[in-house]
Design a binder for these strands. Structure first.
Lengths: 203, 203
DNA sequence: TCGTTACGATAACGATCGGTATGGAATTGG
DNA sequence: CCAATTCCATACCGATCGTTATCGTAACGA
């Protein structure tokens, strides 16, 4: 009894998910959502509840649809291959779609609405500037012999900032200082040695 | 001629910076800013311009005031000590103030307004759940001998997720796939070996 | 065919957003 | 002491936010 829904719920959810992926939670307005889904506002409310519920549904769908490499990775036979599968899967996902860079779970609150774009760009620029300083410093280090000739300073700088930003996210999630310090120590444990200067175990 | 300003601009800027640190750019409303600074809205506009200009000033102040370990690190004699100083400085900053966890530059757009808190918490929980899965997987790996007895599965899981999230941030900043892959490879280069199983160079 | 049901579309709700016009008070230079 | 100037405070601006009431109508079971 009663009329049936005209739009496909799954299709609409996919479209909504892509909006959240691109603009984040607060950055995605209902104007964006209705435009992307082709579904009017009250119909979205009827089908999904409020905005938060819609976002949670979209997040769940993201996990099962795009984070499928996570259970794949966990099924790998060795820990190293688990890590490798995870890292490569993340690289792939982060760069597969040119207009959905990064990961919904992070962009979800790292991205913002459209008119916050200049601010976001300023932050990105500041980041890039810091990373460039690091890269130049590592270039000098290689020239001075305390990095091996084969070391890639751009990779080292990118790796370091990746760990730094990952730690910042973790701190926001409530990680203890000890845990963060252990993460930092592990990151250091991979530091290349073998230049003309001896490896340096200090602090 | 004319009356002088009653409030101290630097003090107000510090207070505003702390608000942005906690709530992000869009999450910080003028209601928050006036409450924190004790300065009325028109006075903030007169002193700093609009919200974006105020944020940029706050960001600059954050760099010179709290990211002072960055030039310190760059002045270290070896690349490894540069990295160490940077990592430890970041750990310190991220955990020094209980109510300003993380880094302004990342929270700046990773945090949001107060009523987005449940969504943020859902994301944090999802992240923690994934990390717990990783930790359990590494526990099993140690039991099976493909991780050394001394390996700390919690640290490995935290390190991996830190790199993953750092890469996601970098992808949002426009990093190339090759660069991200190089970062991933470097992160893998530090993977502990020495369990009963041989090290596994695959994939 | 008829009554019921739930649809889709429009428009409006109160609240809050960033940003400003308006006065009255206060402090300055002359 | 006066006039000019700049302050602070209140109140309001239009726009947009998430959310919902209203309403005509299309699709169902009987």
């Amino acid at each position: 009894m009663g009329r049936h829904r005209e739009f496909d719920v799954d299709t609409a959810l996919d479209a909504a998910m892509r909006v959240f992926w691109r603009k984040g939670y607060e950055g995605a307005s209902y104007a964006d959502l209705t435009a992307a889904t082709g579904v009017e506002r009250p119909a979205l409310y009827a089908a999904f509840g409020n905005k938060e519920a819609l976002f949670r549904r979209a997040l769940a769908r993201y996990y099962e649809r795009y984070l499928d490499y996570l259970p794949e990775a966990l099924a790998q036979p060795t820990a190293r291959r688990v890590a490798a599968h995870l890292l490569h899967g993340a690289v792939d996902l982060n760069t597969r779609y040119p207009d959905h860079t990064g990961c919904l779970g992070i962009n979800g609150v790292l991205a913002g609405s459209d008119d916050a774009e200049p601010v976001r760009q300023a932050l990105i620029d500041a980041r890039a500037a810091g990373e460039a300083l690091l890269r130049e410093r590592f270039d000098r280090a290689r020239a001075e012999g305390d990095l091996p000739e084969t070391a890639r300073s751009d990779v080292l700088a990118a790796f370091l900032t990746a760990v730094l930003h990952g730690m910042a996210v973790q701190a926001k999630a409530g990680f203890s200082r000890d845990m963060l310090m252990a993460v930092a120590e592990h990151a250091l444990s991979t530091w290349p040695t073998g230049g003309s200067a001896p490896s340096d175990p200090a602090s």
